[in-house]
Design a protein around this nucleic acid. Structure first.
Length: 198
DNA sequence: AAGCGGATCTACT
DNA sequence: GTAGATCCGCTTC
């Protein structure tokens, strides 16, 4: 069974929940993701077309797009064919191997928070800019993606975190009730009255 | 050459 | 729940 990647990030995102991202000794089972739909998505880095930074997203699928933000690294899995730029942001995961290494990289942090949040996840895995462009399905790559072994998890859906544009679309997916999922925003936007603009 | 805003995180009230 | 630290890419002067 291989890892499913659809050209559409919105389709790929929920399929990636439960798959395992490994770099070296540390492996993380993905529990939270967000979809970014390339040039047609105002919240995507690719919205304004190719640049030096987002070049990997316009390349072939199955590669890792890494960028820096506020002094942290964020990891994305490119899912669209060359020329398009759909990608899935890996927001959180549960450490399933190399626990001692992950703990050493995040001193004093409880296990369920080791890879909670995109910046924390890359830190636990040791992913940085040099891993950008890595082919996740090449057997010789330092960073790899492995298929899910368990049954498909229960999935919840909600708005993306931290985006100011296209904030209305529910393109964030996470494993229902999982404690490793980031909690910076309420899971579901509660709408009381209709005039509570963003 | 400089300013702005962002796919964040931690600590503190 | 809120504020502030912190850094880089992109736009503009």
């Amino acid at each position: 069974m291989s890892v499913p990647l659809d050209p559409s990030a919105v389709v790929s995102a929920p399929l990636l929940l439960g798959t395992v991202l490994r770099r070296g000794e540390v492996a993380v089972e993905i529990t939270e993701v967000e979809a970014y739909e390339g040039m047609k998505d105002p919240a995507s880095h690719a919205f304004k077309g190719p640049t030096a930074r987002n070049a990997v997203m316009f390349g072939p699928p199955g590669r890792l797009y890494v960028y820096t933000m506020h002094g942290h690294f964020c990891a994305n899995i490119v899912c669209s064919p060359e020329g398009d730029a759909n990608a899935v942001l890996v927001r959180a995961g549960r450490v399933v191997d190399g626990l001692a290494y992950a703990r050493a990289r995040r001193p004093g942090v409880p296990d369920h928070r080791l890879a909670r949040g995109p910046g924390n996840l890359t830190r636990a895995l040791g992913i940085s800019l040099v891993d950008g462009g890595t082919d996740l399905f090449d057997t010789s790559s330092p960073v790899r993606l492995w298929p899910r072994e368990d049954e498909p998890p229960g999935i919840s859906v909600g708005p993306r975190v931290g985006v100011s544009r296209a904030a209305e679309v529910a393109w964030r997916f996470w494993v229902s009730g999982d404690p490793t999922v980031s909690a910076y925003r309420p899971a579901v936007r509660r709408v009381r009255g209709r005039s509570s603009s963003l």
